[in-house]
């Protein structure tokens, strides 16, 4: 796990839907993460290269560059190739999950995102303690 100057792991949310970005920010910041945003794959790669995140959350369907393409580029980058990635999509078919994993995703969430699922996946992939850990 890594953390930035403000304490929490840095998450880059890449989605063309402003509502998804805002919701993810609110939920993840509430759980102690630091959130950055991008509106498509190209901007996501630019942001990730400028400030490498501890986790990326990537939508599938975006203009200019889709999420699959972004993840494939990420996985070829010597600095960013090991950054864990959650793919988030409205598409719930097995083939969609497989395509996401093949592109380099570590986790797949079907929209609309549930706050507890988003937070637990983010904690798991950044090495943070899970909410259930330590529970009796």
């Amino acid at each position: 796990m890594s953390a930035n100057d403000t304490g929490g792991p840095r998450v880059l949310v890449v989605d063309d839907a402003v509502t998804v970005r805002a919701f993810s920010r609110r939920v993840l910041e509430g759980a102690g993460f630091v959130v950055d945003e991008a509106v498509n794959g190209i901007e996501g790669l630019e942001r990730a290269m400028a400030v490498p995140p501890d986790l990326v959350i990537v939508d599938v369907n975006m203009r200019k560059m889709d999420g699959y393409t972004m993840l494939r580029v990420l996985r070829r980058d010597p600095v960013l190739r090991d950054v864990p990635a959650i793919m988030i999509s409205t598409e719930a078919k097995d083939s969609d999950r497989e395509q996401a994993l093949l592109a380099g995703a570590n986790w797949y969430i079907v929209k609309p995102p549930r706050p507890e699922v988003l937070v637990e996946a983010a904690r798991l992939l950044t090495g943070q303690p899970l909410a259930t850990e330590g529970a009796p």
Partner: peptide, 12 residues
């Protein structure tokens, strides 16, 4: 019961 729907509707 969907938290995201509530959030999106509030935002809109």
């Amino acid at each position: 019961d969907d938290a995201f729907v509530a959030f999106a509707v509030d935002a809109a």
